[in-house]
């Protein structure tokens, strides 16, 4: 479903701030894989996801989604394959627009947008059904401005918008990190539910090692723009947080430096 081959990305090349963010990444995901990604600060986790989305061009290497080489495609043209939820709950929705308007934008992802009316009554019924799955009462607030919702509600809505078109790949970039623990759990459980129900292929960055072990069928650990550990199946299920910390120290030659990750241990 996803094939990342030899991808390199350096920011601010040739300056004192030069940062090799991706250092020859190779990664292949099978259809239905749910990969959790952990790693230290600046390991390249978000850069990897952003490269797949086309937020910036990569320096070299190739990215293939479901057989199509998207390496040179601009961000908006790749969007039809991808569902995305960002760390910042404000980033995934348009605050000044209504809930139904936001959903109608997501429903047309990857389709030509013409001069047809943006929302039909049939869609509205559909939106209500979808929103009721969130269990947040949003189904009765179709014409509320998204800016009036809480961070958790916005993130749940962003998640719904990301999955409603059945993306080839769902990318979750620490999407629960900015939420309070209870809301974070709700959103994470919803993510799991949507992924399982629609058998989505998904990648989830998290700073919570227990979540990384508990969710998905595969776990990768990144350090210095490389994938240093890739585990799946039974072996992943039997991991413990201490295993992961030890693994990190062995493989990277230093202790894990992700403060939030250690705090949430």
């Amino acid at each position: 479903m996803l094939k990342v081959t030899n991808v390199y990305k350096t920011f601010n090349k040739g300056t004192v701030n030069e940062k090799k963010a991706l250092n020859g990444i190779n990664l292949e995901l099978k259809s239905g894989d749910f990969v959790t990604i952990i790693g230290g600060n600046g390991a390249g986790k978000s850069t990897l996801l952003n490269s797949i989305c086309g937020v910036f061009p990569v320096d070299s290497g190739s990215i293939v989604i479901d057989g199509e080489d998207v390496t040179r495609l601009p961000e908006h043209k790749r969007a039809k394959y991808l569902g995305r939820v960002f760390q910042d709950p404000m980033m995934g929705t348009a605050a000044d627009m209504w809930i139904e308007e936001n959903m109608s934008l997501a429903l047309r992802r990857g389709k030509a947008r013409g001069l047809k009316w943006a929302i039909t009554n049939k869609e509205r019924t559909q939106y209500r059904v979808m929103l009721s799955q969130l269990g947040l009462g949003l189904e009765n607030r179709l014409s509320s401005k998204v800016g009036l919702l809480s961070g958790g509600q916005r993130q749940a809505l962003t998640l719904l918008m990301a999955v409603m078109q059945q993306p080839k790949l769902l990318l979750l970039d620490e999407h629960t990190a900015a939420l309070d623990p209870k809301t974070a759990e709700t959103v994470l459980n919803l993510s799991e539910k949507f992924i399982n129900e629609s058998k989505l292929t998904a990648m989830m960055i998290t700073h919570n090692m227990r979540d990384a072990i508990h969710h998905g069928n595969r776990l990768i650990m990144m350090d210095n723009g490389r994938i240093i550990y890739d585990v799946s199946g039974e072996e992943k299920k039997n991991l413990t947080v201490d295993d992961l910390l030890k693994k990190f120290a062995d493989l990277s030659g230093s202790a894990l430096d992700n403060d939030r990750m250690l705090l949430s241990k």
Binding site: C53, P74, H76, A79, K80, G92, A95, K111
Partner: peptide, 12 residues
């Protein structure tokens, strides 16, 4: 309103 959101939803 939100350029990131727009691009993520396939808007040029």
């Amino acid at each position: 309103c939100n350029m990131n959101m727009a691009r993520a939803n396939g808007i040029n």
